[in-house]
Each structure stands twice: as C-alpha cells, then as structure tokens.
Nucleic acid binder design. Structure first.
Ligand code: SF4
Ligand code: SF4
Lengths: 137, 137
DNA sequence: TTTAAATACTACCTGTAAGTATTATTTATT
DNA sequence: AATAAATAATACTTACAGGTAGTATTTAAA
C-alpha cells in the first residue's frame, strides 16, 4: 500500500515543520529541504491552510505555522483532509457495500488488517513523527 | 487501501472461475456475470494466460481454464503478476530505501501492519475465495 | 469447405493525479 | 511611497490507468 503522493508530501511537510513548531516556515525553505516540486508544494500548502492544520501568513516575512499543538494532529486527519480516508479504508476488493452482515470472500481477514491500519493512522501524531527522521528520499 | 482495478478484476474473475475449476469459461460469460468492461476483461484474460495461472483455448468452443489446482494459486501471486506486489508492499511514505536499519518515522508501526497484509495475501488461495460469495458489486 | 463462435492484437480515447508557468495579491522593510 | 519577499489563483501540460473500437486469427461444427 502506498499513500498518494499528495498525502505523502503532506505528512513529510508537516512532520518537518513540527520539528520547530513555533517557527514560521516558508515554502521556499520547505522546497529546498524536502525535495518536492515547488509549485505543487505551494498549492498544497494553501490547501493545508484551508483545512486548518496550519495557517498562512501572507506578505513579506510570511509563511506557514501550526494552529494547534502538533501532539493534537494525527496522521489520519491529514490523510483524510487531502485524500479522504475512505480511499484507503474502503473495501480491498473495491466493492461499494461493505459490512459484516454482507461480507465478501476476503472480508474477515481484511477487516482485521484494515482496523490495524486505522489504529496506526489514528494513534500517530505529527509530533511523534517529527521526533524521528523523516528526511529520507 | 484499495487494490488497482486490474488486480481487483483479476481476483474476482479467477475466484468466479474457481467455483467450477474444471469448466472452460468464456470471456462472454465472465463479462455477463462479473460486470466488467468487455474489452478490458478480454485483454486482462490474455495477460493472465501469459502469466500461467490459466491457459486460453482459442477458436470455437474455446475459453479459459486453470493450469493447476486453485488451492495452489494465492492472492499474492495474482497481485504480483498484474501489478507487482511492491506497489502495495513498498514504503507507506513512498521512500525508496526501506530497511530496519534505516527506518523512517512510521517504519516500526507500518512494518508490523505490512507483514499482516503480506500474510493475508500469501495465505489466501483462490480456492478459498471461491468458497464464499465474491459476486458483490 | 464454409461458417460461427471464440480469443488475440493494435490503435485510439478519456479522466485524474501530478507537475509547471504566469500573473495577482499581500505586507514588512526601506 | 516604492520595493522586495512572501502567498494565492488560474490555467496549462504530462503520464498513466482504465476503457473502447475494429480487425485478425483460430478452430469446432454444419
Ligand atoms: S466485506 Fe471486506 S472484502 Fe468484502 S466488500 Fe467489505 S471490506 Fe471488502
Ligand atoms: S522505514 Fe517504514 S515507513 Fe520508513 S521508508 Fe521504510 S517502510 Fe517506509
């Protein structure tokens, strides 16, 4: 399983910013550090600002900063904001109607794993990610 | 997480065929039963024949049939054949270089879940899928 | 031997995620 | 007030998965 590049970028960007959560980060700096296409990152920053995790400060000396403690921002929320969690949490077989009552062949096994993924996303905060090194490429 | 439509189609097609493993199945019949685009299914059948799970029989009275017991065909093999397993088993963050030695922030948690998914794929045979109903849409 | 019913091949179309280019707007500094 | 340095908005381009169309080939049955 891979996240979309957009979700992936979002996690890397916010994790990087969370290393210095009080600081105002510029798009220019983020691009230089994170190896993400300049224009795409800028558009994504605007989007992330609209979702409310960060706020943008326009004009000279502007940039982006968090609106709340990074301990209170979870991976699940970010993925949900940019891609929609259902993109990853939906049925592995692509079936629309999924429930325990109306299971398909893989359901029992899959539902177990799916809940593990959900827990992973829901219990990992950006603060936690920032503690470690996410600078890999 | 969702499989690609192609992988998804492959599982549904082979699971359906595995309900009557000795029978020769025509593309026409599969399309009618499985609600998959006609031309796309046919192209996919040719591809699946080339991978060796099934063999094609050309000409009138032709169709497709298994080359080996459906107990010996596993979900992981099918996904690997059509998409490449690495598409799903690679790093959740999209990083190229993944190992326990050089972990990124999510690695420990993710690697655990990933192995669960692998086990699910590797231990579920087409025969097992066929036992249950995969006729959902 | 002709025909019908099946698969195989090749080329083209379409929608979407990702990437790029240009211009407009905001605001601290000078 | 002018400038510089930042974000915002809009539109265009590209690559690829998925879908479609038409034609060629194969083979059992009539
Ligand atoms: S029952 Fe499980 S595998 Fe089946 S449609 Fe629902 S989530 Fe998918
Ligand atoms: S360590 Fe884990 S999360 Fe990090 S790159 Fe490897 S698989 Fe991905």
């Amino acid at each position: 399983m891979k996240l979309s590049k957009t979700a992936d970028y979002s996690l890397r960007i916010l994790s990087f910013m969370a290393k210095k959560p009080e600081q105002i980060h510029t798009a220019k700096d983020l691009v230089a550090k994170l190896n993400i296409s300049d224009k795409y990152l800028r558009r994504l920053m605007t989007q992330l600002s609209k979702t409310g995790f960060i706020k943008s400060i326009q004009g000279r000396e502007g940039g982006y900063s968090f609106t709340k403690p990074t301990e209170q921002i979870f991976v699940s929320q970010i993925i949900d904001a940019v891609d929609g969690l259902e993109k990853y949490m939906g049925c592995i077989m692509g079936f629309g109607d999924c429930s325990d009552d109306n299971p398909c062949a893989l359901h029992k096994k899959w539902a177990k794993v799916r809940s593990q993924i959900m827990i992973l996303f829901e219990t990992t905060s950006i603060a936690e990610m920032a503690e470690k090194d996410v600078q890999k490429v």
